[in-house]
Design a protein around this nucleic acid. Structure first.
Lengths: 179, 179
DNA sequence: GCGTAATTTGAGTCTCCGCTCAAAGTCTAG
DNA sequence: CTAGACTTTGAGCGGAGACTCAAATTACGC
């Protein structure tokens, strides 16, 4: 992985992996399919990556990082919800993987699972912080509820592309605990 | 499939399929694993079922039917939510399949997908009816939101068994649109 | 240019999966 | 008891997927 051709090959493989995950999900991104799309043979793939999981993990890691809002600046709930909606709508493939990993037991890489779980945890914490500064009771519990509900909306959106994710997310935001 | 031994074999196969789906998810319920657990060889399996999908579909169909509340009697939202929680908690394996099918693209049987989708649809309709008779604005939209949110809570519960599904579902129930 | 390190090639291995089938064995109605 | 229908056996097929490797080719610092 030091000559320029090698780095270019690596990039093409990652690009192909990203596309295939988006189009066909995790299961559809086989090494064979990735290699075909990248215009590369299996040997080259394994010259660049230790395993299929390494390539998949790299792609997902990049996606997660790209989506994560800056940690330092506090945000209100509305913009956190908007960010979530934007994530699902702009990176449908990754959103699908996110949910696929959560739901499917015994998914390939435990590391992938751990990484996504941490991402989820951070999201809950952000929501909790936003709710706390809005003086809501039980901010952590409500944050868990909201993030879980948003995941549910995302699931719905994945199975029905006409589903009004943004609208329903706003509706969720308008719900208040009845006293 | 007419002698008693055959029917018993069939039952053992279905039982094994049910258990394996619950323990390892759809992907873990391979024909080999099912046959081992049922104490049967592959040939017997295919003497009873046309395909693996037929066995899986049978098991899931039975589960869905067992969970479906009686259609004639109208119910309020609280008991619908309770029924959903009970479904997820008592039939974790089936709940997992339900979500797995929704999330995973290109899942095996299109029929399985269709069947689960119809089940989902009926649930939304029930919720909408209950909300309508409670004089809520936009009952259909709110029903979609609630069912989607419940699905999200179920996802959370699947990945963290300590998650307080019942409590969070009640909390969801307490949320009201702010005017 | 040269030499070496990096890269590519592509046939091939290994494993797992769903599924088949002919032969042998087991029921059960009459 | 018997004949015909049903069931079990278990080796094995075809295909897909992840991954390997020795030999050939290519890049590029010097």
């Amino acid at each position: 992985m030091r000559y320029r051709v090698g780095l270019e090959t690596r990039d093409r493989i990652l690009e192909a992996t990203r596309e295939l995950i988006g189009e066909r999900g995790l299961a559809g991104a086989t090494v064979k399919a990735i290699c075909e799309r990248a215009g590369v043979l299996a040997g080259s793939f394994y010259n660049q990556f230790e395993s299929k999981d390494e390539a998949v993990l790299t792609v997902i890691g990049e996606s997660i990082r790209a989506v994560e809002p800056p940690a330092d600046r506090a945000q209100d709930i509305a913009s956190l919800v908007d960010a979530y909606v934007a994530f699902v709508e702009s990176q449908e493939g990754m959103a699908r993987v996110y949910l696929e990993v959560v739901v499917t037991r015994g998914i390939q890489s435990g590391e992938l699972r751990g990484r996504l779980m941490r991402h989820h945890q951070r999201r809950v914490e952000r929501f909790a912080a936003a709710l706390a500064s809005a003086d809501v009771r039980d901010p952590v519990e409500l944050a868990e509820l909201m993030v879980a509900a948003l995941n549910g909306l995302a699931v719905h959106r994945l199975l029905d592309p006409r589903f009004d994710l943004r609208g329903q997310a706003r509706r969720l935001l308008d719900l208040r605990p009845a006293d």
